[in-house]
Amino acid sequence: MITVNNLNKFFGKNHVLKNINETIEKGEKVVIVGPSGSGKSTFLRCLNLLEVPTSGEIWFEGFNISSPKTDINLHRRKMGMVFQQFNLFPHLTILKNITLAPVTLGLESEQAANARAKQLLDRIGLTDKATAYPSQLSGGQKQRVAIIRALAMQPDVMLFDEPTSALDPEMVGEVLVVMKELAEAGMTMVVVTHEMGFAREVATRVMFIDEGVILEQNEPKTFFSEPKHPRLVDFLSKVL
């Protein structure tokens, strides 16, 4: 579904991603872990071209989306993204936040979009917040709305950039539950996170990135019980 060929990314002279080759198949739940500054968020942001690769190619559903000739807006519709800081639109109601993109892009009528937004809100138990503004929601509620806002575009893959890092500890659970349900429903997911419990439980594959290189990856059981690379052994000893 997503193929990354020889991906390099520089910020000025800083070589953040070093010649990464990777494939993510449909239905996979890939969890990316690593120390801060390792390039894991940059890697995720390269997948939907929020960061433009310095060199290399990103292929998505058979299209080279890193080519300047590709209309990236069309492909981004199929790649949902959830941010650490939620990034809800503060000037719009929750309902409008969810329906803005599908209605503006002419994918759905306003009535159909509203109906589906209400279904999605119902799924996360926030039906009564439809007419509220983001500033009236808690962090956990905001992040759950951000997730269904991305889902309203009916994406084929969901990218999560540290979705629980900005939350109070007691709100982390409610967001992870929504993500777990999504995984169980068969969504292809790429998740950058520090939640090792989530990685262990939900991931089909865990990936360790350090200094811009994928040092090791494996299915979660082996990844956590038999790490091979000394850097990963060291990392796990600190976070577990």
Partner: peptide
């Protein structure tokens, strides 16, 4: 982040 959120929704 507002721009990024808009762009990732395909706008």
């Amino acid at each position: 982040g507002q721009t990024e959120a808009g762009r990732t929704l395909g706008l």
